[in-house]
């Protein structure tokens, strides 16, 4: 797939895989939207809206990453990186953005 084709599908080039450190969130500003991008130990990249699902508000980009789970730094809820769903016993949802990796380039799509 070429960059043109991906952009036609609404994806935007975010950088190269190497630009994203393991287990430390990277803040990506897509226009006015803040997206927190996470690379797992396994090298998978996930993108979530940078907004805590908890009642106290705040951001999630600086949370602790464990496998494909993010611990919300404000309320310590567990958020699935793949789908943005808050795991039991808590409930909530963070918008998840699709990610495509093509030739070492990372593209972020529309949720």
């Amino acid at each position: 797939m070429t960059r043109e084709q991906l952009e036609a599908e609404g994806y935007r080039l975010a950088g190269t895989v190497e630009q994203f450190p393991e287990r430390i969130g990277k803040l990506l500003r897509l226009g006015a939207i803040e997206i927190a991008v996470f690379k797992t130990t396994e090298g998978e990249i996930f993108a979530l809206e940078n907004r805590s699902p908890g009642p106290r508000g705040g951001t999630i980009v600086d949370g602790i990453v464990s496998g494909e789970v993010l611990y919300d730094p404000i309320c310590d809820w567990r958020i699935g990186l793949a789908d943005g769903a808050v795991q039991a016993p808590d409930r909530g949802q963070v918008a998840a953005f699709p990610v495509r990796i093509v030739d070492g380039d990372v593209y972020i799509g529309r949720p």
Binding site: I24, G58, D62, G63, I64, V65, I74
Partner: peptide, 19 residues
């Protein structure tokens, strides 16, 4: 290990409820 630090100690500031 920065990735094992809680946000405040990783970023060396006190995070507030508005981020």
């Amino acid at each position: 290990e920065k990735d094992s630090r809680f946000v405040n100690e990783r970023m060396h500031g006190n995070i507030q409820k508005d981020g």
